[in-house]
Design a protein around this nucleic acid. Sequence first.
DNA 1: AATGAATGAGCGTTCATTCAT
DNA 2: TATGAATGAACGCTCATTCAT
Lengths: 208, 208, 208, 208
Amino acid sequence: MLLHRPTQTSDQKIHSRILESAEHLFATQGYERTTTKQLAEASHVAEGTLFRHFENKKSILAAVISEGWNTLLNDLLATLCEVSDYQDMVALMRHRIKDFHHHADLVKVCLTQSPFHPELCEPLQKERLRQMQEVLEAFVQTGIDRGFYRPLDAANVAQVMLILFLGISWIDNHWLNPSSSAPSQVPLADTLADILMNGLLVHQPATS
Amino acid sequence: MLLHRPTQTSDQKIHSRILESAEHLFATQGYERTTTKQLAEASHVAEGTLFRHFENKKSILAAVISEGWNTLLNDLLATLCEVSDYQDMVALMRHRIKDFHHHADLVKVCLTQSPFHPELCEPLQKERLRQMQEVLEAFVQTGIDRGFYRPLDAANVAQVMLILFLGISWIDNHWLNPSSSAPSQVPLADTLADILMNGLLVHQPATS
Amino acid sequence: MLLHRPTQTSDQKIHSRILESAEHLFATQGYERTTTKQLAEASHVAEGTLFRHFENKKSILAAVISEGWNTLLNDLLATLCEVSDYQDMVALMRHRIKDFHHHADLVKVCLTQSPFHPELCEPLQKERLRQMQEVLEAFVQTGIDRGFYRPLDAANVAQVMLILFLGISWIDNHWLNPSSSAPSQVPLADTLADILMNGLLVHQPATS
Amino acid sequence: MLLHRPTQTSDQKIHSRILESAEHLFATQGYERTTTKQLAEASHVAEGTLFRHFENKKSILAAVISEGWNTLLNDLLATLCEVSDYQDMVALMRHRIKDFHHHADLVKVCLTQSPFHPELCEPLQKERLRQMQEVLEAFVQTGIDRGFYRPLDAANVAQVMLILFLGISWIDNHWLNPSSSAPSQVPLADTLADILMNGLLVHQPATS
DNA sequence: AATGAATGAGCGTTCATTCAT
DNA sequence: TATGAATGAACGCTCATTCAT
């Protein structure tokens, strides 16, 4: 009985180690270019062991993507809960950017691999994206109802916000020198938040 | 003299046929999952013929990506030239969305494959993206100088706009049922344009 | 403990089986005309297994040639050690011929493939040939010092002997009907030994 | 009529150019590693033109080998005709070495490719080798009949001489630094001739 | 007759997966 | 349960040969 615990723990540890290695390798090299040999080495297990924990290579990807979207969703939820000031989009944007930067590998895997594995995403990605959109939608709708935001279509606004979150993460991943460890995008985030709140146009004075 | 033409034309046709097939197959299946056999069949040539026109499989991808960014850049330039009204962001957004929808395969290949082939992108993608950003930046700066836009950092605004163009194309590609041939995103585009122009917040009347 | 042995033995057996098949196939068909498929079939392993034991096809050739020269060198050493009578070149020649006949495939591979793979031979063949020549040179020098042989340049004599050993093996391989399993060249070997010892010319009586 | 001549001449020139290029390329890279593209480029003709002059790649090799053995045979005949002094084997050997050195490519192609194309050699190589042996045999027999040479088996002696000729050419090709343009093997040739004439053993004085 | 683009069988090699230990 | 050697289908690519021009 006591002997079971370590084994089981070890099992879970192997499982997690594989997923962590996979997330990083898939993000760095892509799914196809990552061999099971590399996965095994990076996870410090034998190649055959991978197939005791996952049916095949693809289901490792499935697990990474699945957990990935869950994580991203949960983090978004947490962020929105923390935001008290509906006008303080700057804080939200900075938060999101830091968060997506922290999950850079996850975002990269999800965005680059999902399009080619729709069967993995049907049940998961779409659901998670829908949830994220719903959460944002509710957030926006509340803002509208309370008179902070203009009465736009909350669903569309939510989609725009999602695009911005993912897009800024994308830029973070690919358009910057990867050496920059983090916050170089803060000005961009601030501009983005400013535009999102106030728009580009000069406000027409109400009296004119 | 006249006899030369058909051969040359045929040559170009093969080259183009390969690139067109490649663009579609790479977008549909991904680069790695597309075999040279499939590429040959889709181009109606023998497998060996591929390697008369391109050094290897990767240089087919390079050509697709290279031409892809050029096309996207040129189309963006053309759009911006046509836009006369700096306040008519709605027209611009609709234009862009229709255009990126038209080049959906291109965008998909460029966005999903570039991260894993940095050597293909260093000289090309970065240059093209920089050009697109510069063009947008000039557009924005003019809008600011003429008093239409608020005096934000034009470079950051340009990046935000690029994110939005690419992002909306992404959504178009992956979050919608692919059967929808086109204009389902018009409302989204209009909302996006509205937010970009006017922001989310209710304008505080200057007199209040 | 006992369970390990069969695996290890089996490993070595695969490695050796591949080398044996390769030696024979390379000798029979040449290196280029031998496919890895044939190699695998002749070794009774899967094609992929070849590449677990050797980095690529060429390193199989390298191993064959390397082991080949070692074998030929060792056999020559053994022969020379056994020869007690410096005047009994007939015995040496017969010995050599039988030996090279026994290693006919090896000689053929080494002689026909080495010229086109100098990178394989630089460290090995040249060294082994040098060693063989040195051994023969020492043998000859001893013969000279003891007054059996005429005071010729031992290095040159050694080279002549090597040429004869390899050349007679060559003839054995290619100028005879391959059905003759062996000793048809004994008269030739005897003549060769006679010439090597006594020369072609009629001896001028010392008194004349 | 007059127009034919240049064409025909050009034909022959193309034919010869191909054979010359082939001889050198086959000797340098081996038959299999030489592509028809390389052959065409080295011959300054189009790839397709090769197949107007030769049925296929193999028949180019056949022509090279065929002409090669003829050349070697004719040169040997010429040398033997020139040799007046049956005891002057040194002159013969030096002659042969210079000659084989001059035909180094030819010898290399014939020796390395023949073993793997017996069908090319059955009618040609064997015949030529037989002729060479016969010529040498007659030479030796004459030397024996006139009392210069010891009464050995002339056929075997002829084979030994052939081995020496080919073997010394082999050494010339592969055991020396290829930069040495020529006569570095003269001492070896002299030693070889000395041994061939006088043998290794110290002559026992007839009176002892 | 000369060309060289097109061909496609066949090559060496990879790698996800299996299974005896 | 964990291992890693063995597997073989499938890959990207080569190149001798053909044939329309």
